[in-house]
Design a protein around this nucleic acid. Structure first.
Ligand SMILES: [Mn+2]
Ligand SMILES: [Mn+2]
Ligand SMILES: [Mn+2]
Ligand SMILES: [Mn+2]
Lengths: 228, 228
DNA sequence: TATAATTGTTAGGCTAATCTAACAAATTTA
DNA sequence: TAAATTTGTTAGATTAGCCTAACAATTATA
């Protein structure tokens, strides 16, 4: 049985590697920053998790999850996202409130609880932020995702999530009329300042590259091409 | 903010005093036994909780909750019993499975979560074991309860709870056809060995005093008398 | 009421998870 | 490639919560 803290380290490493588009391994400082602890603390824990064969770690090297570590991480991610879905769908929590509470609920230990919750929610595939929920076998559907910034001009895509989960950003997103499953069409990119002109529900908006980078989308037009 | 452990001590003290029929204060060894720790550990914590003004404690004396401590204890009890109700009513948990998981869920910190859960469950008054659930203001309805052992011969009473929460006992209870809100009629008391003859759903059974002592009931016949 | 049994306390240690401060390795930059 | 910067490690301390072993106070019993 893993401690609350060990679980949080595995989840962080999962997010920084498996679920990251840029990297497949993470450095000690990076992990520490992600968890809000000092590098010395993270270093201690990395050695401990290596001893438990949950991560690959070598002195002065980058870290990754072992198969076993990934299994645990997926369980935590599954719990986190199912609880978020529960709070959103059943308890009238708003989009930007669910994460904080799910950070606690994800550590409740009961196989039966999480499988019954899954059933109660009718086996949802994505959480309120559009992130995929691992199934009971720990399989995570990897859909072809990218940020709005990377989308082709002229394409219509579907918003499936966000990268930044801060309440401030989520409220900004709401204010533009964006939400999960919303269709976004890229009209143009402004040469002068790189702002993207997008259309949401027939309404035009200009968004910054920083904003666009934090909106996750899938594009069926691009996916179709990619298949070949 | 109280720690997980501090919360458990307050809850134990609540159960051993406020919710006990025998005593209104608890000794160090008793508290330790209830929590499954050594008296030395409990002693440390009692001193700490006294410093925080959550309990009344004097060296070599018995302990009780302060007003402030009772407030926290009631919150934890409220959360515990609401979660038990959720597991039982919404997730198809059985009567004897809910307690263990609720021991974990009772420590989740979110005022909004628990109030929304209360609403979702339609403001239940008792948990699956028949124990009263404190309301959002921390008020606990004290109904006139006693054990089956104390009931008058000839009276019909209603089962509202159990004292022993062990899975073994709960399964025994089930096997006799007993459950919450079940009507029990006391037919007779056997002079020879003190067994109680009861009738449940038209079926007769003999139960031991030890068994009867662990079944909590209310009796409207007795209550009516008591009102005057 | 003296002795025995019970109950409660203290001192000193242990572990998990954190920190700071000093240092060492690796990488970047000039 | 040497120096500077960044990144990672170590040693030593701290805190919460627990333990054992020794002891002290209280209560029950002879
Ligand atoms: Mn989240
Ligand atoms: Mn967490
Ligand atoms: Mn319970
Ligand atoms: Mn608890």
């Amino acid at each position: 049985m893993l401690s609350f803290t060990e679980e949080n380290y595995l989840k962080s490493l999962f997010q920084l590697t498996v679920e990251s588009n840029e990297k497949v391994e993470a450095g000690t400082n990076e992990i520490a920053a992600h968890l809000g602890v000092k590098p010395a603390s993270a270093n201690d824990m990395l050695k401990k998790l290596k001893d438990k064969k949950l991560i690959h770690y070598e002195k002065y090297g980058k870290s990754t999850l072992t198969k076993e570590g990934r299994k645990y991480a997926l369980e935590i991610v599954r719990k986190h996202r199912l609880w978020e879905t529960f709070l959103y769908e059943k308890l009238e929590f708003s989009w930007d409130e669910v994460h904080e509470v799910a950070e606690q609920l994800e550590h409740i230990q009961s196989k039966k609880l999480i499988d019954k919750l899954d059933k109660f929610l009718n086996y949802p595939e994505v959480d309120p932020h559009g992130d995929a929920i691992p199934n009971a076998k720990g399989e995570l559907e990897i859909s072809q995702r990218k940020s709005l910034l990377e989308e082709e001009i002229g394409h219509a895509c579907k918003m499936v999530g966000v990268k930044d989960n801060s309440a401030a950003f989520l409220q900004y997103v709401d204010s533009i009329g964006l939400s999960i499953n919303q269709i976004i069409r890229i009209k143009a990119r402004e040469e002068f300042d790189d702002l993207l002109e997008i259309e949401v529900n027939g309404k035009k908006n200009r968004v910054s590259p920083k904003f666009a980078e934090n909106i996750i989308i899938t594009c069926s037009e691009c996916n179709r091409l990619r298949k070949n």
